[in-house]
Amino acid sequence: MKILVCISNVPDTTSKINFTGDGKSFDKNGVQFVINPWDEYALTRAIELKEAKGGTVTVLNVGEADTEANIRKALAIGADDAIRVNAFPKDAMFVAQQIAAIAKENSYDLILMGKESIDFNGSQVHGMVGELLGIPVIFPAFKLDMIDDTTARLEREIEGGKEVLEVKLPFVASAQQPMSEPRIPNMRGIMTARTKPLKVVEPTGEGAQTEYASFSKPEKKSGVRMIDAENAGELISLLRNEAKVL
């Protein structure tokens, strides 16, 4: 089975978010970048499927050269090879077009992504890729097993419950917890990752359909009002009469 896993490169979950003085772009200063946490679920599940059934796992990132540290990390975790489309990921449509172009060239059996990237919180790329390729998209999937060589069984979260689906390959699925237990690269993985192939290709087309004009931060809370534990019940009347949320 040939599996493609798309990973985005995002600020670590503990990062403080700042923007440049003019508010026009994200300030990368002092920010640690990681593989998007949701994509780690996709990556580990892909590696598990490969270990069970054979095949290859290719990781793909649309990004500039500074994302290579995390691409190597994905290789160290167990992907076989990697592709980087050498471009700033302008928006979801642009990224989706790059991924779809690579997928058309290599015809993968399965394309796995994360539910959303935690920088722009779009939840868009998987749907766009599926539509561009004309294949189903299962969003968000928290369980994925192969029934046989051509059909997978997935569980997908819906509001108020879950759905069980059986879908023929190829398709796109976007992963969420608890699809797999993300792995930490071991020493051997880190050593072999250095020599695994990482191909850099140039982007195709323009694609972008949106322009990010400016960024801002939410207003700070005015401060917490403390209530004495002895009179805890008073909270309920404050919530009703002062905050007006009950």
């Binding site: 978010i17 722009f120 322009e211 990010y212 004009a213 400016s214 960024f215 801002s216 939410p218």
Partner: peptide, 11 residues
Amino acid sequence: VFSGKAFADVN
């Protein structure tokens, strides 16, 4: 954007 840590104005 950024998990509720910021807003973006998008055209």
